[in-house]
Design a protein around this nucleic acid. Structure first.
Length: 425
RNA sequence: GGAGAGGUGGCCGAGUGGUUGAAGGCGCAGCACUGGAAAUGCUGUUUGGCGGCAGUCAACGAGGGUUCGAAUCCCUCCCUCUCCGCCA
C-alpha cells in the first residue's frame, strides 16, 4: 500500500511512477478528490466530537456537585443536537474512508528509481550469466517430462486422475529427488543464516491482503468454500504475515526466514501455456526466502538475497542468468525484482526458477509490520523482501535435462548425492 | 459436533455509566545512591489521524444500539481457552 500522504503531496511524481507499470493504467485523481472531501468532513466531525465531549464532562461535573437539573437540561439538549449532527455526518465519512481504502489497496507499488523503465518482459535487462561451461553439448536431450516418464519418476496420468490436469504424482526416485532438493535447499539457507519455519499453508484473507494477493488477484488462488481460508500461492504469504500487526525492536532486524511449503495456484489466464511437464502446475513445492529489514539496508539485502538464491543453482551447477524486471513487468507488490532463469536445453531457453523482490514498505504498510528504534518515539515500517530459493519442480526439470547423458541416463548433481544416496537416477 | 469460561497497555491484572488512555504489579528505560553492582528511591514507559507541534480526535476483540456521556448496559459477529466426542 502506498502512503496516502505521499500521494497527496507528490501526486505528479506518484502518477508518473505508476505510469511506468503500463500493464494497467492507474488514475489517482479520484483518490485525491475523495481524500480532500474526507479530510474536510473529518475536521468538522472532530470539532463536533470535541464539543460533545466537553458537554459530557460538564454535565458529569455538575451532577457530581449536585447541580440543579434545570441547569443541566439545556446542556443535554445541546448534547443531543451535537450528537444528531455527528450521526448525520458519519455515514458519508465512513463511505469515503471505505472507498479510499479500496482504491489504495488496488494501487500497486511504485517501481524503484533503479528499476529499468520498460513496457513488458521484452524490455527486461539481463544482468549476468553463470555456468555457460555447464551447458550440455549433447544435442539429443529429451524434454524433462519425457525423460521423467521413461525413468518412472513422474506419473502424469494418475496425477490427473486423482485431481485434475496440471497435477502430477511423483513416484519412486522422482519423489525422493524432490525431497532431496527440499532438504538440500533448506540446509544451505539455514547455514546462510535463515531460520527455518514451517507455516500453515491455508491462510486467511487478511494475510493475502497483507502481501498484496488480495483484493486484486482473488482468481489466482484456491479458496476454501466454507471458511475464510485460501491455499497459499507461495510461502511469502504465511511467512511475511508471521509478523503482521507487530512492532519489532530495531535490534531484532534483520530477520531472515526460509520455508518449504507446497504452493497452490489456479494459473488463471495461462490456458494452453506449458501444458506439458511440470513447469506450470496447480500444486508445486518451493523453498522460499523471506527477509524483514531496516529500510536503510533493503537494497543491499536484496542483492544478498539474490546471491543466496543463485548459490543453489551454482552448487547444483545449473546454468542460469539473472534478469532484472523492467517497470512494465514488475509484480503488483514489488518495487524492484530480479528473476533467476535456469537453462532448459530441450527448449533452448532460460526459464524462470526464482523471483527475488524488494517490496520496500509496501507489504509492511498493508500488514502493519513496524519497528521501533530504542527510545525514539514513533514507529517505522520495515522493508520486506523475498525470493524463491528455489522452485523445486522447475529445479528438477532443469536437472533432468542438464544432467542427461547421451545414453539416456541422468546423473545426480554432486551436491545432491549425499541426500539421494545415489549417483544416477 | 456438545458443555462451559473469557477477550483491557510488552506481560499479569483492576475497573460495571461521568476529568479512566485506563488503578496496582511485573518488565523496561533514565536519574539518584554506590568504587562498581544488588537493594532502594524518584521519573518515564500504547498506537494512529490532524496540527500553527500548544494541542485535539480516535482506539479497552469487531460491528451496531441505549445515553448529554460507555471499557462499563443491550444486540450481533469473530476469536481464544477448558472439558467431552471425533480424528492424523
Amino acid at each position: 500500500m502506498l502512503e496516502l500522504k505521499q500521494i497527496r503531496e507528490n501526486a505528479p511524481v506518484v502518477q508518473e511512477l505508476l505510469n511506468r507499470r503500463s500493464a494497467d493504467t492507474y488514475d489517482i485523481q479520484q483518490l485525491l478528490q475523495l481524500d480532500r472531501q474526507q479530510r474536510e468532513l473529518e475536521s468538522t466531525r472532530t470539532n463536533l466530537q470535541a464539543r460533545s465531549n466537553e458537554i459530557g464532562k460538564l454535565i458529569g461535573k455538575k451532577m457530581r456537585e449536585g447541580g440543579d437539573p434545570k441547569e443541566i437540561q439545556p446542556l443535554k439538549e445541546e448534547g443531543n443536537e451535537v450528537r444528531a449532527r455527528l450521526a448525520a455526518s458519519e455515514p458519508e465519512i465512513k463511505e469515503l474512508k471505505k472507498k479510499i481504502e479500496e482504491l489504495l489497496l488496488a494501487l500497486p507499488n511504485l517501481p524503484d528509481e533503479t528499476t529499468p523503465v520498460g513496457k513488458n518482459e521484452t524490455e527486461n535487462v539481463e544482468v549476468r550469466r553463470w555456468g555457460d561451461e555447464y551447458v550440455p553439448q549433447n544435442s539429443h536431450i529429451l524434454p524433462h517430462d519425457e525423460i521423467a516418464k521413461k525413468l518412472n519418476l513422474i506419473d502424469f496420468e494418475r496425477g490427473v486422475k486423482v485431481a485434475q490436469s496440471r497435477f502430477v504424482c511423483l513416484t519412486g526416485v522422482g519423489a525422493a529427488l524432490e525431497r532431496a532438493l527440499i532438504s538440500f535447499m533448506l540446509d544451505r539457507q539455514i547455514a546462510a543464516g535463515y531460520v527455518e519455519v514451517m507455516p500453515p499453508v491455508l491462510v486467511n484473507s487478511t494475510a493475502l491482503t497483507g502481501t498484496g494477493q488480495l483484493p486484486k488477484f482473488a482468481l489466482d488462488s484456491f479458496k476454501c468454500e466454507k471458511e475464510d481460508l485460501w491455499l497459499t500461492p507461495t510461502a511469502e504469504v504465511p511467512v511475511t504475515n508471521l509478523y503482521r500487526e507487530e512492532i519489532l525492536e530495531a535490534s531484532q532486524l534483520p530477520i531472515y526466514h526460509c520455508a518449504y511449503t507446497p504452493c497452490f495456484r489456479r494459473e488463471a489466464g495461462s490456458y494452453g501455456k506449458d501444458t506439458k511437464g511440470i513447469i506450470r502446475l496447480h500444486q508445486f513445492n518451493k523453498v522460499e526466502l523471506v527477509k524483514f529489514v531496516h529500510p536503510d539496508t533493503s537494497a543491499a539485502e536484496h542483492e544478498a538475497l539474490v546471491k543466496d538464491a543463485e548459490a543453489i543453482l551454482q552448487e547444483l551447477k545449473l546454468p542460469y542468468r539473472v534478469v532484472e524486471l523492467c517497470s512494465g513487468d514488475l509484480g503488483f507488490s514489488a518495487a524492484k525484482c530480479y528473476d533467476l532463469e535456469v537453462w532448459l536445453p530441450s527448449a533452448g531457453t532460460y526459464r524462470e526458477i526464482s523471483s527475488c523482490s524488494n517490496f520496500k514498505d509496501f507489504q509492511a504498510r498493508r500488514a502493519k509490520i513496524r519497528f521501533k528504534e530504542g527510545k525514539k518515539k514513533g514507529t517505522k515500517f520495515v522493508h520486506t523482501l523475498n525470493g524463491s530459493g528455489l522452485a523445486i519442480g522447475r529445479t528438477m526439470a532443469a536437472i533432468l535435462e542438464n544432467y542427461q547423458e547421451p545414453n539416456g541416463k541422468v546423473k545426480v548433481p554432486e551436491a545432491l548425492q549425499p541426500y539421494l544416496q545415489r549417483e544416477v537416477l
